[in-house]
Amino acid sequence: MGIPKLLLAVGLACGLAAGMGARTAEAKEWKTIRFGMDASYAPFESVNQKGEIVGFEVDYARAICAKLEATCTFQNQDWDGIIPSLLSNKFDVIFSSMNITDARKAKVIFSDVYYATPIVFVGQASEKSKDTSPAALKGKSIGTQSSTIHANFLETLYPGSDIKLYPTQDEPNLDLASGRIDYVVGDSLVEEDFVKTKGKGCCTILSEVQRVPGIHGPGVGAAFRPGDTDLQAMFNKAIAELDADGTYKTLAKKYFTIDIRGK
């Protein structure tokens, strides 16, 4: 095979890239809404023994669908590919504890915030010091899920630490439990759940992260394709209604002891 054919191979790649730029939008009657979730985020969403996705966000999504009189389907999707999957129409909405950030807004549009919870540092149970400043954690290994606000936060503010990025939040937790890494950064409720159940007392929550404007954003929202502003409006209306009629509170009580609404 000669050089010209190699160039053709490059051309093929470029053609694929060009195709990816193109997107279409259209009006649609939302009889069925397909939800994309990274189900490795208990108690918000996780997979049970039957292979079903369960958790707070599933219940909440069902409540939204009931308001919109639409049928809901749920799909499990790895976090790294969740935005490309939405954009390539594998589902219609990301409903997976996605924090609203400016970088993401360049690709997708968000609903109003539907929950906001603290972010925490978790360490080994034997860890005495509660100090989790960049200076204290210099040279230590810190794990979190990749493509998240936590990853962005660590990479920006903890350049002296060894940052390990994993496909899901379950995996840094497991590595913290086995002692492979020293700290984990994650959502407080997810980490509390882990420390209490699967972690079996391996680890302890050390400190709360001060939200940094420009990195953390206002909280979690549903994400849609930029063309689907009608769906966005429908969700915002449903979110407001569920707040007003108390459904949100009832659902949240099933899972959490603290108020997560965060307005």
Binding site: L16, G19, M20, A22, T24, G81, S85, S88
Partner: peptide, 14 residues
């Protein structure tokens, strides 16, 4: 292929 294909399909259909 997984992510590129659907975009190409959408493009072709448009």
């Amino acid at each position: 292929v997984y992510f590129g294909l659907q975009s190409l399909l959408d493009h072709a259909q448009a």
